[in-house]
Design a protein around this nucleic acid. Structure first.
Lengths: 347, 347
DNA sequence: GCTGGTAACAAAACCGGTTTAGAACTAAAC
DNA sequence: GTTTAGTTCTAAACCGGTTTTGTTACCAGC
């Protein structure tokens, strides 16, 4: 007999007023006498009434939901430290406003475009967060075309009408290089993320700039793909050559951890023979052997700020770019003083 | 001038029929003459019409969305290999049916209950997936109370009216123990997940059962929490005692990797002095040093099957429990023949 | 005492679909 | 030739809210 949920008509009948009056009272709009308002509120409470989100969505043309399209290989997603924390941050903001988060995971490529198209055409969300920006990212004009409000994580390299929520990667990389230089390293290499990802590209560029600023020649850069397998392979390429670097700056922790293992596999000591820095400060970073010197970013906070910015934008407020506290170095045991030209265990 | 999207009324006008006819034609229902149907389809295509999901939701009382409430510490989420892969699997199924995935991340505890309550009361989803089941999980009766269709990942230990999508953890753990026993180990310990999680409890139980089946005495069990920090601490407790085990079965890869590092920190060789197995087969497992012997589960497939089961249930079909291919051992380098009673490096 | 303005509410229209009731016509059955 | 059944389509109701329009009552002002 619990039966169906009470509707606004039930509340109206129970309070002896019209549907419109109930709607006005519940939304705190003027034009309802205080006594009547009380009566309506009491009736609503008594019936346990809660507005039906679907009906509300239809009449106000809003979904009360934000969208996030993740274009990554599902396999890769499993080891990605960014996305779960980011989502958690977004959620904390949405929860208090009663918004939902609609997630879409698509294979990168054409499917991605369809992902956004679906979200927009089905009118399922009021706005989207553009993450994992690529260089000349086609999603920016696409989402603009679709008329969907959006925020981007960091500023795209294409003209964008959307507010950017920025977390600068460069200071972290710069600090890592400075840290290594301070330890006496002069031959520093970089294992980069894919160059078509903006964050991969930026970290690589920051690495090169940092070396330059330190007055060192450009270091060797191995392009990889943010995966453990890629990190392993890139590390092997760097270390199995006549003159190997004494330190490697990795574009993420996953590659760095795989890299440390690869180095150990080759009989090298970390940090004795090779210093290593990562990026992300994943949970594991502090618990591997040796503990990983890495760069910490507040991904959770990034999610919160991005969500707030997008909600403001949707509410029609003017939103400018937002800057978050930049990435910071966390020094641990995987980096050490450069040993002067001792005999590397041959080859 | 692009203006607003075409509605069904526009299509009707354009095809010279009524709204109802359009709806019938588009949904492939009988009662529309073939010629008329063609005309309507052509008109819809010409105008680029797509049904408004919000309006459809309201009139058919369905959200065309599934919900997933994740009750984990956001920090923990970041290093969790399960959830992103699982979601990816769910998504592949939802995408082809035009459904959306609504995600909610809440701190464990009371907030979790509210999470489900919100999803149900706001009528945002047609059903939910219950993951990370705990022992005597209160969500089962809660969701039943809310009248929300659901599937559970594995069968709860409380009476449940919902289909369970099962991936048996036991064979994997059993295989790990058998593998170690085959290598000559007799003193095997387990670093367990939280006992109030069903999967933590089950893996521990499987470990104990496997030892028993092998005719060995019960091994030592250290309760931990699936985190790297917990794995490190538990490993230290196991290894810093007079008689240390020669092999450790960990309840997940994260703890296992941290455990290997902890052992190395203590001056032990893996697998020389200590064999280690993990659980999950995360991407990193194959790329650490030594490569981790672990248990592989098809989490992506689990997501797919769970989504399909829930959709069937929502469509009113009778759905029974579904069994997935059980977990399998992947032997790598972190396990080796037990060395006979050589001198451990004292203490 | 009549007009004008405003507050408080009811009634109705609307959002964009689906679904039901019923009208108009055709074809088969008696 | 009328009834019966079936098909095809229109009109209208409906989902549950929000928003606009209308109506009534009250009060101030001239």
């Amino acid at each position: 007999m619990a039966g169906r949920r009470p509707t606004i008509a039930d509340v109206a009948r129970h309070a002896g007023v019209s549907k419109g009056a109930v709607s006005f009272a519940l939304n705190g709009r003027p034009g309802v006498a205080p006594a009547t308002r009380e009566r309506i509120l009491a009736a609503a409470a008594e019936l346990g009434w809660r507005p039906n989100a679907r009906a509300r969505s239809l009449s106000v043309s809003r979904a009360f939901a934000l969208g996030l399209v993740l274009a990554r290989d599902p396999v890769l997603l499993g080891s990605d430290p960014f996305f779960p924390s980011f989502i958690a941050g977004v959620e904390t903001v949405l929860a208090e406003r009663g918004h939902a988060l609609v997630l879409q995971v698509v294979a990168a490529g054409a499917a991605e475009e369809n992902g956004y198209r679906r979200l927009a055409e089905d009118a399922r969300v009021d706005g989207v967060i553009l993450s994992d920006l690529r260089r000349h990212d086609p999603r920016v004009p696409l989402v603009e075309d679709l008329g969907l409000p959006a925020v981007t994580l960091n500023r795209p390299d294409v003209p964008s009408p959307f507010p950017a929520v920025c977390l600068d990667h460069r200071p972290g990389i710069l600090a890592a290089v400075e840290h290594l230089v301070g330890l006496g390293h002069t031959d520093i290499a970089h294992v980069a993320g894919p160059d078509d990802f903006l964050h991969g590209h930026e970290r690589k560029q920051a690495f090169l700039d940092a070396l330059d600023a330190a007055g060192l020649p450009a270091g060797r850069v191995e392009d990889a793909d943010f995966t453990a397998a890629g990190g392993t392979a890139a590390t092997r390429r760097l270390l199995c050559q006549p003159s190997r670097p004494t330190a490697i700056v990795y574009a993420n922790d996953l590659m760095a951890i795989a890299g440390i293992s690869a180095a150990q596999d080759l009989g090298l000591q970390v940090p004795g023979d090779l210093s290593v820095t990562g990026y992300d400060d994943t949970e594991l970073a502090a618990h591997i052997h040796p503990a990983l010197t890495t760069v910490r970013t507040n991904v959770f906070g990034w999610g919160q700020v991005a969500a707030r910015a997008l909600l403001s934008l949707i509410d029609g407020e003017a939103v400018g770019d937002v800057k978050l506290e930049p990435a910071q170095l966390v020094a641990r045991r995987s980096t050490a003083q450069h040993r002067v030209q001792s005999s590397p265990s041959e080859k």
